[in-house]
Simulated assay, not measured.
Amino acid sequence: MAHRSKPDTGGAEATNATTGALLQDRALRAALWAALRLPYERRVPLFGAIAQKAASRLTSYHQRMLENLDYVWPDLSEARRSEIAAAAGNNFGRALIEHFSMADLARRMDGVAPTGPGLQTLQAAAEQGRPVVLVTGHFGNYEAARLCLIKQGWNVGALYRPMGNPYINRTYVDVAEKVGGGPLFPQGRQGMGQLLRHLKNGGAAIILNDLYVGGGVEMPFLGKPAMTGLSAAELALKLRAPLIPFYGIRAPDGLTFRVEVEPEIPASDAEAMTAAFNRSIEARIEAHPGQWFWIHRRWKRKWNGGKGMKPGLHPAALPRRKSS
């Protein structure tokens, strides 16, 4: 396991290290301690049910998911939108406790063999000591997919966004460290330097590329304009590394996964390659809509000093939801 320094948060760690943040972390640790007393087969469904119920009761989150669904799929019935939102909340809760049950999840991924045409490219790169950029999104459980690849012998690191609460962030990262989950690199100058060294040494790195990026490029995502980061494709081009989409897809039993590694996205330019990834994850979302994190505000229009704004925007495209 590579050494991981504290996240390069530009001073956020010091700023947010309040008594309240510490108490939040202690509450989380207490809840996790109690949850981990339960067998894994009960723990994961329980957290899924809790998150599903919580999302339905926290009006702003539930409303955001419904608005996102109405925005991209306006022909869906209200009942179907509610069904997808409930499934997404359940999947989020399961993924959350699975992260904090990383040792159990790792053992479960021992016998899972990844599939897909991208495996051949990944294997060839490893044999040649070449870097690989693996790209995915907040779908199913990307941690399960990452552990699966690590279990197959690939040196897979990941770039992550540090949380605002530095204590919870440390708890989150520590869990992965303890089970040999591959090196994690915090977003920021220091983390990017670590990521580049990892890649130049022939490692593979995972980047999640399905969130709003204010400094990105507008391109379609599920048929609607969304600001999208180009960094994954730019990194692949810079290092002449293959850009390979991959996914951890939750099985109907809610506890197991299949891991699919798609073909390498052909090298061209960063925008075209990123658009190709968008089409890849769109297909996954359309096939399993309840496994994507609809809670994210993917389509908000607030970039370029407000130039993305215009009258009559759908609520999903507003910078923030208006109070009713």
Rank of each mutant, 00 (worst) to 15 (best):
R4Y: 08
R4N: 12
G10R: 12
G10F: 10
A12W: 07
N16K: 01
T18P: 03
A21V: 04
A27S: 13
W33E: 02
A34S: 13
A34E: 07
L38A: 07
L38W: 10
L38C: 05
R42S: 04
P45D: 10
F47A: 14
A49I: 03
Q52T: 00
Q52I: 01
Q52Y: 01
A54F: 08
S56I: 00
R64L: 12
M65F: 06
N68Y: 04
P74F: 01
D75R: 10
L76A: 07
A79E: 13
R80Y: 03
A87K: 12
F92R: 04
F92V: 10
G93H: 12
R94V: 01
R94T: 03
R94F: 09
I97Q: 03
F100G: 13
S101Y: 04
M102D: 13
A103W: 05
G116I: 06
G116Y: 00
P117D: 13
G118V: 02
T121V: 14
A126Y: 00
A126W: 00
G129S: 09
V132Y: 01
V135Q: 00
H138C: 09
N141K: 09
R146D: 11
R146E: 06
L147W: 03
L147D: 00
L147I: 06
I150C: 08
W154A: 05
L159D: 08
R161A: 02
M163I: 05
N165S: 01
I168P: 02
I168A: 11
N169A: 13
A176E: 15
G180L: 05
G180T: 09
G180F: 02
G181M: 09
P186S: 04
P186L: 03
Q187S: 12
R189V: 09
L195I: 09
L196F: 06
I206Q: 11
G214S: 14
G214Y: 01
K224A: 12
P225F: 05
P225H: 03
L237M: 13
K238C: 06
L239W: 01
I244E: 03
I249S: 12
R250W: 08
A251P: 01
L255A: 11
R258M: 11
V261H: 01
P263Q: 08
P263G: 13
E271V: 15
N278D: 10
E282Q: 14
R284Y: 13
R284C: 15
H288V: 04
P289M: 06
G290F: 14
I295H: 05
I295E: 12
H296K: 09
W299K: 02
R301H: 13
G305K: 07
G306E: 11
M309Y: 06
K310F: 06
P319S: 09
P319R: 02
